[in-house]
């Protein structure tokens, strides 16, 4: 009896489907799920690539709790994430609102604001490395022409992190485009009704625009939070974590541990901690979104 006769038409259809998604499925298992599971095994081991992994249980997690640089990098990354996410979402919303007014040349500005999104973090870091030096950097040179003595942007610990946050504002274009799409989706009848009720511009913005955009705010918050926790390239190029570890972000610490010092197990443990933090913050955002996100006039 032919094997195909053993299968029902439904099973045959399913089998064909699985065969067609097979290449993707193999890729997913081999390059995403496999390494994901392997990194968990590594997190419980000591491994320097060349020698076989040695099982240490939760040793790597215990070790990181006692490492000053772990806490330092976590603190720096948390500050960066909180401040930069709030600022980026606010600035992106503001820019989108301005560009949605149909001002002349809005497409030019739209493209201009979006352009930095296309640069990699490394290129961004190199560009800003020309802006920040305090003697002949572009920013201080402009300030000097205006009679202001610019600060030492990257040389004092609190200001160095502030400079990195400032730099991250350059990439609000992606969020801005999503907000713009959301703004276009808000029914004009709502504004017309508000106009009849003689509501002012600010009132319309906070009573119509912001509530109607809350699903997009949530989306942008989650995405930018994940991106901010993973900031790496621009910091590695611009400050390499200095001065005095004041810009030592989490991924830079992880990268050094795993790929420079070959503490692969410890690096994997750090990666899992970051994963848990990101998942937790995302869940908190999604759980609390019911209180402030509106879908089509009703709360989520």
């Amino acid at each position: 009896m032919r094997a195909s006769n053993l299968l029902t038409p439904r099973m045959r259809r399913n089998l064909e489907g699985y065969i067609f998604i097979g290449p993707w499925l193999i890729g997913f298992l081999a390059f995403i799920l496999g390494p994901f599971a392997f990194s968990f095994v590594l997190a419980l081991s000591e491994w320097s690539i060349l020698e076989p992994p040695k099982f240490v249980g939760l040793g790597n997690f215990e070790k990181l709790l006692g490492e000053d640089l772990f806490w330092k990098s976590l603190r720096v990354t948390t500050i960066f994430t909180v401040v930069s996410v709030i600022l980026r979402v606010s600035i992106a919303l503001l820019l989108a609102t301005l560009l949605n007014q149909g001002i002349r040349g809005h497409r030019f500005f739209q493209a201009g604001f979006y352009m930095p999104v296309m640069f990699s973090g490394v290129i961004l870091g190199v560009l800003w490395a020309w802006m920040f030096p305090f003697d002949y950097g572009l920013i201080n040179d402009l300030l000097r022409r205006a009679g202001i003595e610019g600060p030492r942007w990257l040389s004092t610990p609190p200001l160095a992190l502030t400079s990195i946050i400032m730099m991250s504002m350059w990439r609000v274009g992606g969020m801005m485009v999503i907000f713009l799409a959301g703004l276009k989706d808000i029914p004009s009848e709502l504004y017309e009704a508000a106009e009849i009720d003689e509501a002012g511009g600010i009132s319309r913005f906070f009573s119509i625009t912001v509530p109607m955009l809350t699903p997009i705010v949530l989306f942008n918050l989650v995405i930018s939070m994940i991106q901010s926790f993973q900031v790496f390239g621009e910091v590695a190029v611009l400050t390499d974590g200095g001065p005095y570890n004041s810009t030592l972000v989490y991924l830079l610490y992880l990268y050094r541990q795993a790929f420079t010092y070959l503490h692969m197990g410890y690096g994997s443990a750090l990666a899992w901690v970051l994963f848990i933090i990101i998942v937790s913050v995302t869940l908190i955002l999604l759980k609390t979104s019911g209180r402030w996100v509106y879908y089509g006039g009703t709360r989520a």
Partner: peptide
Amino acid sequence: PHGSDVSVQNGR
């Protein structure tokens, strides 16, 4: 000082 871009190669 730290963070300066003054150097011999830029003549400063």
